[in-house]
Simulated assay, not measured.
Amino acid sequence: MAADRPGLTRVEHVMGTAIELDLADDLPPARLAELADRTFDWLREVDARFSTYRDDSEVCRLDRGVLRLADASADLRLVLQRCADLWAATDGWFDAYATGRLDPSGYVKGWSAQVASDRLVAAGAPNHCLNAGGDVVVRGLSPTGGPWRIGVRHPDDWASVCLVLAGSDLAVATSGVHHRGHHVIDPRRGVPARGLRLVTVVGPDLGYADAYATAALAMGEPGVRWLDRLDGHLHAVVTDDDRLLHSTHLPLVD
């Protein structure tokens, strides 16, 4: 961030990805650093609790049966309830057990970033952008005083974008093949989903947008029609045959 602009930018590696926080409020440097510290402390706490790669995480201990649900944290119980609600709302296409074990990652990253953003607003930092590995929540105005610009990376070329969005108070979640290949599981067949290579969902809450993007990717091409009917949300998709389709009113930058 330029020296003559207010705010702070910090990038840390959490949850297996680079997470970037841009604070655009004209606050004392010590206060900005404190807010950034709190944000990344929360994200590390979420990673410790929900990681599927750490044997001592609550998710892994619950999955192995060594932790009772009644003894789990309030955050874990909340996330599991949200995942159950999303399973019902998506007719089973969002499934935290699609891989055969408990994995709520398709909701957790977006949810934790949304919680962090809400806490920043409550703490007096209403202008910020939090980019959690491509799942982005923007609030208020950017350091230039205008809307934030959010690039959606192309599934074929991680260094380029297939579209750019602009706005304030938006949640933008993307699920796609990228460098991981077709990793989202079709929960009805138990195999990697095919038909869509990228799904971006834009809405008011990053946790739900994240889950809806995962569900649509799991559906394959029928997911486009499902997204068309999803109230309060806009979308863009890239199909396996390289078609870019998007909602009419998606806030695109020319």
Rank of each mutant, 00 (worst) to 15 (best):
R10W: 10
H154W: 09
R243W: 02
R10V: 15
V177M: 10
V202C: 03
R49V: 11
P192H: 04
P204G: 15
L8H: 11
G151N: 00
L244N: 06
R101H: 11
L8D: 09
P29W: 12
D22F: 02
D22Y: 11
T248Q: 04
G16D: 07
H233F: 10
D47Q: 01
L227R: 00
V201M: 00
T144E: 14
E12S: 07
P143H: 08
V191E: 15
R189L: 14
G190I: 02
S51I: 07
H13M: 02
V224M: 03
P6N: 03
C60P: 04
D231V: 11
V177P: 03
D25M: 00
R82P: 01
A88S: 14
A24P: 08
V121W: 03
G167L: 09
R61Q: 09
L165H: 12
G181M: 07
A123E: 12
R188Y: 13
Y107G: 04
V164W: 13
A70Y: 04
L252W: 12
S112W: 04
R31T: 14
T200P: 10
P222I: 00
P204C: 07
E58N: 03
L35M: 08
R31L: 15
V59P: 11
F40N: 04
P126D: 05
D254G: 11
W158Q: 14
D241V: 13
P143D: 01
L196W: 03
G232Y: 07
R180N: 10
P6M: 00
L62A: 06
V224A: 02
R64P: 05
L23K: 09
P155D: 11
D37G: 05
H182M: 11
C129I: 03
G145D: 06
L32C: 05
S51V: 05
V136S: 13
S73I: 01
A166F: 10
V253M: 09
T9F: 05
D103N: 15
G124I: 03
I19S: 06
G100M: 12
L234I: 01
R197H: 14
G133V: 05
H249R: 15
R64K: 12
H128E: 00
D63M: 09
D241T: 04
V184M: 09
G145L: 05
R38H: 11
L206V: 14
G65Y: 05
G133E: 13
L170Y: 08
D71Y: 07
E20D: 14
A72G: 09
Q114P: 13
H182W: 09
R101W: 03
L250I: 01
A216R: 08
A171R: 04
D228M: 01
G124S: 01
L252S: 04
P126E: 06
V59I: 09
L230R: 08
V238D: 02
A236D: 02
L234W: 00
D47C: 03
I185N: 12
R189G: 07
L198N: 06
A24S: 04
V202Q: 03
D241G: 02
G92A: 11
D241Y: 13
R49G: 09
G106A: 11
W158F: 15
S168Y: 06
T214F: 08
R31K: 15
L206Q: 08
V152E: 13
D56G: 02
